[in-house]
Structures are given as C-alpha cells and as structure tokens.
C-alpha cells in the first residue's frame, strides 16, 4: 500500500538510519528493524533519489523541493513533482523519512 503524500508537507530524514557517502555512492544503513525485507539489506538511491534525498531537511515542503529541482534539472515540472512524490512515498513506507510539519 502506498503511503499518503502531501506536497505541502515537509519531511526529514529519519534518525533511525545512517546515510553514508562512500566512493560516490549514497548508502543508507538502517539502525532499526523493518526498513528492509531481509536481515542484511542496505539501500542505495539512484540519481533521482539522491537529488531529492539531499533536500529532505525538514524545512522545505515537497513542493519547494520539486521547484528547486526544476531549476537544476532539465525536465518538465510535472515529471519532477511525480519523481519527488514517488520517492517520498517509498521512503515513507520504509520509515526512512518522517513528517516534520503538521500539514
């Protein structure tokens, strides 16, 4: 089931993980159970995911994140918004981000 995403809400990276940059790769290491499906899973993000992840600071709404990315990437705003929502849904489902705002 997909997590419900609100584009006006702000999200922040969970404190229950460590995100590490190793040899140009972003590796997410869970600190609690339940993020992965197996006992030894780590996560890495694709290019789209990395760009979004870096902006999830608990201050910017997802709409602002998408807007900022529109200035950095040559892609239609609608597509970027879909990417941001898609990743946020996946990260929220895995409890890798938490809602920072009340919205």
């Amino acid at each position: 089931m997909k997590a419900k995403i609100n584009l006006d809400a702000t999200y922040v990276q969970s404190e229950d993980l460590v995100s590490r940059e190793i040899e140009g790769e972003l590796i997410i290491v869970p600190l609690v159970a339940g993020m992965g499906d197996m006992e030894d899973e780590l996560f890495t993000l694709n290019e789209t995911g990395r760009a979004v992840w870096a902006k999830l600071d608990g201050k910017k709404s997802l709409k602002t994140v998408a807007k900022e990315l529109s200035a950095e990437f040559e892609a239609p705003p609608g597509e970027i918004e879909r990417d941001v929502t898609g990743l946020a849904e996946e990260l929220l489902k895995r409890k890798m981000i938490v809602k920072a705002s009340k919205k």
Partner: peptide, 10 residues
C-alpha cells in the same frame, strides 16, 4: 530526471 518505478535500490 530519470523516471523509475523504484528510487531506492536494496
């Protein structure tokens, strides 16, 4: 941006 079904890779 790349549009993929999954953004995080296990």
């Amino acid at each position: 941006m790349a549009n993929k079904d999954s953004y995080s890779i296990k």
